[in-house]
Design a protein around this nucleic acid. Sequence first.
RNA 1: GGCCCCUUCGUCUAAUGGUUAGGAUCCAUGGUUUUCAUCCAUGUUAUAGGAGUUCGAAUCUCCUAGGGGUCACCA
Length: 428
Amino acid sequence: MLRFAPSPTGDMSIASLRIAIINYLVSQQKNDQFLVRIEDINSKKNIEGKDTEVMMLLEKFALKHNAVFHQTEHLNLHQTLALRLLKDGKAFVCKCTEEELETEKKSAKENSLTYQYSGHCENLTTEEYDLLKVSGEKFVIRIKKPTKTITYNDLIQGNQRANPDEIDSFIILDSESKPTHNFACAADDMMGNVNFIIREDKHLINTPKQIHIKNLLGYEDETKYAHISSLKNNDESSSLTWLFKEGYIPDAILNYLLLLGNDKATKEIFTLPEAIEWFELESLGKSPASFDITKLQFINREHLKMMDDRELSTLFGFADADIGKLAKVYLKECSTINELEAKIRPIFKPKDFSGEFGESMQILSELIFQAPAFETFDKLKEHLSTKSGLKDDTLINPLRQLLTGTGSGPELSEIYPYIKSYILEVAS
RNA sequence: GGCCCCUUCGUCUAAUGGUUAGGAUCCAUGGUUUUCAUCCAUGUUAUAGGAGUUCGAAUCUCCUAGGGGUCACCA
């Protein structure tokens, strides 16, 4: 079982999307299940609607999941498991106040030491615990730190180890009886039998803690870990929202994200099904890659070239393969949907006859309205030339302005076949 | 500050002790094109720095520098 565990606390980042893609891809390679878990246990940070937004994005990238749930649905389960650890003496009640802990942390920092829990409440008796419950005084539950060093092998980062002091006796149930991230995460991975965890490398530090939790809960199945190195510049300019707004398409973004840090790609331009064939999780690089928009532009253009003509035309409000073909001519100078739109729209807009070529444009427009339909641009050109007396530059320049609304662009003979059925609309 | 990770053209990367350090992208130049672009051709640009091991180091070791992560009742 593989899983993607986003938290609904903001817009999905490309780094997060990359993790989702890789999880899905590996699940396909292993013919395994892919689970989506919305990590919404921190109600303060949750943003309304971000969970459905994530699901819509997954769909947009064609990452199909077998199941989805919100982590808060498991509150009872988390509490039960925490109490079980308490009962088994593997966890303890801690009544240290946040202020007390804050002071300890501060002094640790001042002395340049790593903060560690003092162990103050470790030996609280059950009687004291009962009293605490009755008194209404706030308390948390901490898991007891391990007695041995925890080691594991990460498929990408190599052998990892964490000693007991690094893991520490950390909080698993907070003062409102809600599970902390590491506990909820480990518990859900265990209950869902997630045995292959692929996530961002920022979780590297959490892994030994989660292994410790699962150990104490008696989970014995082997879990494989792969922590993907993060992206260097994961900022606003590389946000998914921005990319979509700029006219980048999902296939291209997916292609690009899978290419980063990858040395197994047999070619640079590929689709998800193709990547499933050759992708090798273990060979992903450790060094953080930086997001480079110019490379994405290139990839986006290549994917637009591969897109079905008719489908492409729908992006500009048409349903005509010819318009798709027309757009592809413009791909020579464009790499995003927005750029294409900026070229195609003016073709169908009423033209401005007040400019430098206005007079000639008027003449040509009238001639086109009176003329029969011509199969090729050469025939149209010949006809217009004969009737108007214009030729070469004096013909082409106003004609380009009339047909495309702009002074430069592809050869008119190249685009004419795709616009000829709209010629009356175009030439006015 | 402790611990961990990273460093090859601007960018993504190749080269598992022996290459002229390769490819893609970007950029530049030339040719083609009645325009811009495309296309074709050509070209510039890299082993972070320093020691060591070795006949030979991008590759192994050490040091230095730079970058990142982490040390929560955040996820």
